[in-house]
């Protein structure tokens, strides 16, 4: 349950209180080390644009992982995110291209659908006490299945609103640039940070993840919090889906297969405890960047194949889960 250490030396106490930062610091060191190794080994690796490209290429993953962070902080999990991303992209492409709906109607609609689907899953999880894993699994089947029923083939997008947004480049000093997606993603991160650390909802998320029973007895709105995190995750997945649409300029049922695993991996590598209650959204950003750098290094290496990404990510997962376990065991 909790520590029973009665008296500690001041330093030990200060360290004990800050243990939750260890995984995030570990991730940051890892990220810096990987960038350094990459810079030494590969010419042209160390440039501002490479860093920015990490954000550009992983904008959708970043947004999805931010939503996942909320869910995992409460001790839950959301397996439906990849499928919701695909469904959102599919809906965008289908409604805009096949039915001629204006993008400015379609995008809010897609976001709303994501939000509501998350809300529904959250309500089932809370009120009927079914494991989040199985409910979101059903959500994943449903969203993926709906993709297929909409279209079996890829629908490419030529609507100017989408193509303009996709090609938009925002120049930065020093000849650098970012895409609109990256800006949106950073914006979402900023909002998530404020929500998690400066609003009651955010603190309730941590409280529920720390001890749900206590949170109830402390009079915190556990039901509302649980439903909110899944709604947020649903919204973020839909938003990630829109960014994904911008990235791919198409809707396809097989888009974003396995994205949920990447998102979970990013959150865990970012130092969030899978059992809930501890973690930071900025850690998740670091986690996404680590995944991005792994991919970049593998691209630069040339001789390494893409599947090494999965293996390395799996190993990192192992390391971080073991780290969490060790810290958790010490706190017990």
């Amino acid at each position: 349950m909790t520590t029973t250490t009665v008296s500690q030396a001041p330093l030990a106490k200060a360290l004990a209180g800050r243990q939750r930062y260890i995984p995030a610091i570990g991730t940051l060191s890892l990220l810096i080390a990987m960038i350094l190794v990459g810079s030494v080994r590969y010419e042209g690796f160390f440039s501002g644009q490479i860093i920015l490209n990490l954000f550009i290429d992983n904008a959708f993953l970043l947004v999805v992982a931010v939503g996942m962070t909320f869910v995992i902080l409460t001790g839950g999990i959301d397996l439906s995110v990849g499928a919701v991303v695909a469904l959102s992209a599919m809906l965008c492409a289908w409604l805009v291209e096949k039915h001629g709906w204006p993008p400015l109607v379609v995008i809010p609609l897609v976001l709303l659908i994501g939000l509501l689907s998350g809300l529904g899953m959250g309500a089932i999880i809370h009120y009927f006490d079914i494991q989040p894993f199985i409910v979101t699994l059903a959500g994943m089947f449903l969203a993926r299945g709906l993709c297929y029923t909409i279209s079996l083939n890829s629908i490419s997008i030529s609507d100017p609103v989408f193509t303009d947004l996709a090609q938009m480049q925002i120049g930065l000093p020093g000849g650098l640039f970012v895409s609109s997606s990256a800006i949106f993603a950073v914006l979402i991160v900023a909002i998530a940070f404020v929500v998690l650390h400066y609003t009651r909802l955010g603190r309730n998320v941590y409280a529920v993840g720390g001890n749900k029973q206590s949170a109830m007895l402390m009079g915190l709105p556990v039901a509302r919090t649980t439903m909110s995190v899944y709604a947020i995750s649903g919204f973020c997945s839909a938003f990630g889906g829109v960014l994904f649409t911008l990235y791919m300029l198409s809707g396809y049922s097989l888009h974003a297969v396995g994205l949920e695993l990447d998102a979970i991996a990013a959150v865990v590598i970012g130092g969030t405890l899978l059992t809930g209650g501890s973690g930071f959204v900025l850690g998740t950003v670091l986690g996404v960047l680590v995944l991005g750098v792994i991919q970049t290094i593998i691209t630069f290496q040339g001789t390494l194949s893409s599947w090494w990404t999965r293996i390395v990510v799996g190993l990192l997962l192992l390391v971080f889960i073991a780290l969490q376990r060790v810290i958790g065991a010490r706190q017990r």
Binding site: V135, L152, S253
Partner: peptide, 14 residues
């Protein structure tokens, strides 16, 4: 379309 199986599965799971 065979892919619809997923939708049915989702409903059965729930």
């Amino acid at each position: 379309p065979p892919e619809t199986t997923l939708v049915v599965k989702a409903i059965v799971v729930m």
